[in-house]
């Protein structure tokens, strides 16, 4: 995504956020547009955020949740998507466990397709809302900021979307986590530095973005125990003290308190975790507005 597009989305979200503070949280902009959320992975947060964004803009939203276990046996994604389109959907918002599924969907459908997270690939609206949140706390700019991303970078689409967006906007990204969860090629992306020690990534950071730890990674043998992870890689008060005094702490949620982040940090004044959720709605309103209007969506 070009920088100019990202800026347009961020600016639009800035304008639309005001609607969320109104008594009547509704504008008529997307009247008569129908949006379907198609989720092959459970996610209350992202799906609700998209649905509320649609409703605030007067679009009609419906949701389809498909149990992943039945995917292979059941109707193919292609047929499901074609069915939804035939019902008149103007936009399909999809979450899927397979990387690249949204590219596949976009090849099949004529209507707009929004990626709400595909496998380990990308979660663009999360990346944008994180950038939006950082902008709002750091005087409107991202350039030159030191952003630490801590945790399971290897399997994290949130990390990837953050890294692409932030580095393009001129931020310095520092990643750290267990060596088994940091892809060695990550440093080939200009603007990204990998560290063995969490402390080195956090030192002097303007922003610390803590990734959610998927517990099944431990069963796959990528690190020994949750206890060890929390001790060596968890973000706690002592480690956070290495960052700048006005550091902003983010987490995409849902949190494992006491694992990747301590409650002390999550509940501190530095944390903006709930604000990220609010901003998520504004970002998604911006995406819907920019994608769904126009003679040719």
């Amino acid at each position: 995504m070009p920088v100019s597009d990202m800026q347009l989305i961020l600016e639009t979200a800035g304008s639309l956020k005001e609607i969320l503070t109104r008594e009547i949280k509704k504008v008529p902009t997307l009247r008569g547009k129908s949006i379907v959320t198609l989720f092959y992975e459970p996610s209350t947060r992202t799906r609700t955020s998209f649905e509320m964004a649609g409703k605030y803009m007067s679009a009609d939203t419906s949701s389809i949740t498909v149990a992943t276990s039945s995917v292979v046996k059941g109707e193919s994604l292609k047929d499901t998507a074609l069915t939804i389109q035939a019902m008149g959907a103007d936009m399909v918002i999809m979450r899927h466990s397979v990387s690249g599924s949204c590219h596949f969907l976009a090849r099949i459908l004529d209507c707009s397709v929004v990626n709400a997270g595909d496998g380990m690939h990308e979660h663009p609206s999360q990346g944008l809302l994180d950038m939006f949140t950082i902008q709002q706390h750091k005087g409107g700019h991202l350039e030159g900021l030191k952003v630490a991303i801590i945790g399971d970078v290897q399997h994290s689409r949130v990390a990837r979307s953050n890294i692409w967006g932030l580095t393009k906007m001129g931020a310095d990204v520092h990643v750290a986590g267990p060596a088994t969860l940091i892809p060695p090629e990550i440093e080939q992306i200009p603007g990204v530095t990998a560290h063995d020690r969490v402390e080195d990534a956090i030192r002097g950071a303007d922003v610390v973005n803590v990734l959610r730890l998927q517990r099944e990674r431990q069963q796959k043998g990528l690190f020994p125990t949750i206890r060890e992870y929390s001790r060596i890689y968890g973000v706690n008060r002592e480690r956070l003290a290495l960052a700048k005094d006005d550091v902003t702490v983010m987490h995409p949620g849902p949190m494992n308190r006491g694992v990747e982040i301590t409650s002390e940090v999550a509940d501190s004044d530095h944390a903006v975790i709930e604000e990220q959720v609010t901003n998520g709605v504004a970002i998604r309103m911006a995406l819907l507005y920019l994608l769904l209007g126009g003679a040719e969506a």
Binding site: S15, A286, Y289, G293, G294, A295
Partner: peptide, 10 residues
């Protein structure tokens, strides 16, 4: 809005 080629900036 639906007749414009691209969305005006909000």
């Amino acid at each position: 809005l639906s007749t414009l080629a691209s969305q005006p900036v909000v």
